[in-house]
Simulated scan of single mutants.
Amino acid sequence: MARINIVHTTEYSYRNPVGLTRHRLMLRPRDSHDLRLNSVTLAVHPTPAKMRYAHDVFDNSICYLEWAEPLRTKELSIVSTLDLTHYPIGAALPVYSLDPAAELFPFSYASEEVPDLGRLTERQQPDPNRTVDAFARRFVSGPGETRTLQLLEDMTHAIKAELTYGARHEEGTQTAAQTLELGTGTCRDFAMLMIEAIRSLGLAARFVSGYLYDDLTGTQRGGGSTHAWVSVYLPGAGWVEYDPTNGLIAGANLVRVCETRTPQQALPVAGGYFGEAADFLAMNVCVSVSAAPVPVAAQRAG
């Protein structure tokens, strides 16, 4: 259990004054059994004429910003500050109780769950040489010999061990096949590789975006910006989180902000401007995450 403070700053600069289109923000987590929001502050300059919250198709919290004409500006600053308490299941777990029928792979989802899982079980990217299929099958033994949780843990650790992490600030995500071919990628690339591999096995998986806080070892990868990982639907356990970039399981050190079908649906800040293409100068993003353990007495009091 930890008290987490997150400051996420996004700054745009323009050569000439420009108008701003509506912006869409995905910066606010949802309260849950493992996450409690203590306070949320959103500071925007120039000040928008309208700010409203809504839920998207996945029930993520969305904030829309709109500016009135004839506003023109040479800069846009968006600063999200979160104070929250995190109750992770922990790296030493999970000791999940799967439905007996799901303890061994392969298994089938219950008929009443299949329509709701929908496209989360479907591949979203091309795999022309079936390299992703081959990667996924590495972790499957003979019929009745593959334990579901072990399969997912082994895949998580293999991605971390076998691929090279490298930060990439350009927009976009590699396909799972490209990541295997290149042998390198970012956290979002590794997440999509694991998602596509899991979906190739017929399981439902979601793309998760949020923040990573330090485990005090200094060995974690993907900090200093938003982070990406995976959640998998397992009967009896529900949605279980896996971070292939760092080999983390069950949400330890991970603060979930949103869950989507694809990375394109999980942009923290999206919007545009009215002006010339040459007017855009730069976008700078800075994420600061600090964590402090909650004293045992305070945990009991809460």
Rank of each mutant, 00 (worst) to 15 (best):
R3Y: 07
I6R: 02
H8M: 04
T10I: 01
Y12C: 02
N16I: 05
V18S: 02
G19I: 00
M26D: 08
M26F: 06
D34V: 10
D34M: 01
L35K: 01
N38W: 06
S39E: 04
V40F: 15
A43C: 11
R52M: 06
Y53A: 12
Y53C: 09
H55S: 14
H55T: 14
H55E: 15
D56W: 00
V57Y: 10
I62T: 05
W67H: 02
W67M: 01
A68H: 11
E69C: 11
E75V: 09
L76T: 06
I78H: 04
V79E: 07
L82A: 11
L82F: 08
L82P: 08
D83H: 02
L84C: 09
T85R: 13
Y87G: 06
Y87Q: 14
I89L: 13
G90Y: 08
P100W: 05
A102F: 08
E103A: 02
L104G: 05
F105I: 12
P106A: 03
S108R: 13
Y109R: 05
A110R: 09
S111A: 12
V114D: 05
V114S: 05
L120D: 00
R123H: 13
P128Y: 03
T131K: 14
D133V: 12
A136Q: 06
R138D: 05
F139E: 11
S141T: 08
S141H: 09
G144K: 00
Q150L: 15
E153T: 14
M155Y: 03
I159A: 07
A161E: 12
Y165S: 11
Y165M: 06
A167R: 15
A167W: 08
R168T: 04
E171A: 15
T173F: 05
Q174Y: 06
Q174I: 07
Q174L: 15
Q178N: 12
Q178R: 09
T179R: 11
T179Y: 14
L180T: 02
L182N: 15
L182I: 04
T184F: 10
G185A: 08
T186C: 06
C187I: 08
F190R: 02
I195E: 04
A197R: 03
A197K: 06
A197T: 07
I198Q: 01
S200E: 14
G202K: 09
G202N: 03
L203K: 04
L203P: 10
L203G: 01
L203C: 03
A205W: 04
D214L: 10
D215Q: 11
L216Y: 12
G222Q: 02
G223P: 07
G224I: 03
S225H: 08
S225K: 03
H227I: 01
S231I: 07
V232G: 08
G236C: 09
G238S: 14
Y242S: 03
D243K: 05
P244M: 09
P244N: 10
P244T: 05
T245R: 00
N246Y: 00
R261L: 15
R261E: 07
T262Q: 10
Q264F: 13
Q264N: 11
Q264L: 13
Q265R: 00
A266K: 05
L267V: 03
L267Q: 09
P268C: 07
A270N: 05
G272I: 00
E276V: 04
D279E: 09
D279T: 13
F280A: 04
F280W: 10
N284M: 15
C286Y: 11
V287S: 07
V289T: 14
V289G: 11
A292L: 08
V294F: 01
V296P: 04
Q299L: 14
R300F: 13
G302R: 10
